[in-house]
Amino acid sequence: MALVDIRNLTRIFDVSKPWLNRVVERREKSYLTAVSDVSFEIAERTVYALVGESGSGKSTIGKMLVGLLGPSSGAVEIRGTDLARETDAAKVDAVRRDIQMIFQDPFASLNPRWRVRDIIVEPVAARGGDTSGMAERLLEQVGLSAKDAGKFPHEFSGGQRQRICIARALASEPKLIVCDEPTSALDVSVQAQVLNLMSDLKDEFGLTYLFISHDLTVVQHMADRIGVLYLGRLVEEAGPDELFDDPKHPYTQMLLAAAPQLDSFGREVPPPTGEIPDPINPPKGCAFHPRCPLAADVCSQTRPEMRDIRGARVACHMAG
C-alpha cells in the first residue's frame, strides 16, 4: 500500500467580493478552483515532486496533505486513514505526528524571539514528550553544532535557518515531510548543501518526501516520481527519466523547452506564447487548449482523462 493516496482531490476557494459590493455591482459569487480532481500516490521512502508555475496549486495540495487545509471534495489518505473524515482522535493524532512540513522562507517560519533549542523541540514538547538533549543531537544531524541551540534565528544565514527548520521537522520522527520550495530562497551553493542533507536524511531515517518546486533541474535531481500541474490539474505524471527524455503532455513539453539550461549557449528557440489563464474562469475542456499547438475540437469541449502511456500518466486527448 502506498504511504499517501490522494484521490480526486479538489479545493475551491470562495473569492467573492463582500456581500454589499456584490449586491450594488450585481455580481454573482465567484469561486476559484485551486486544485481540481487530482489523484496520485506516494510510495513509502520515495520522493514525489510536484512542479508547475505560480498558482498551479502546488502549495494548496501540500497544505491539504498535512491537514492545514481541508479538501472541498476527494480525499487524502495516509496509510489508509482519511484525516478529514477519521473520527478516532487518537488515530488522527498518530498520523498527524507522522507528517511534517518545511516552507520556502526559512526566516518567516522561525519565531525570532525563541532560542533555537525551543524552536526545535516545540512540536515534541507540546505533546509532553521527553526533549532532553534532543535539540543538540538534531542540530548535529543537520550539520550545525550543539552550541547553536542557545542562539536566536537572526544569528544564522538563510541556509543555516533552513537546516534549523529541517531539524525541527525531524524532532517528531516523521515518516513524511512535505517540503514546499525548500531551497527557492537559497543561493545555488547553499542549495546544494541543503539538497545533499535532505537526501542523506531520507536514507538515514527512511523518510518520504512530497517535494514542491518550480525548478525543473532541482526536481529532476531529487525526485523518483514527478507530477506536473497546470491550473490546478495534474496533466502528467512520470519518473524523471521518462519525463525529461520523453515528455508526453504538450504543456510539459512547453515547460521543458522554456527552462533555461546550463548548456544552452545562445539558444534561439521561440518562447512559449500566451499566458496562464484566469483561474476563476478557466478554459472549458482541457484547460491548456487556448495555448496548445495540438488542440482539436474535442479539447475545448471535454476535459481529458488520465491515461497510462508508456510508463507515464497523461491527461491529454492527443498524446500517444
Binding site: 544565514s157 545555488v188 546544494a192 546550463l262
Partner: peptide
C-alpha cells in the same frame, strides 16, 4: 568551478551535488 558543480544538471543524475563548504 564550485558554483557550476553545485548546480543540479541532468547529466549529473542523482549523484551528490558538489558542495562549496561554508558560506560567503
Amino acid at each position: 568551478h564550485g558554483l557550476m558543480g553545485s548546480t543540479p544538471l541532468a547529466s549529473r543524475g542523482k549523484d551528490r551535488l558538489h558542495q562549496i563548504p561554508g558560506a560567503m
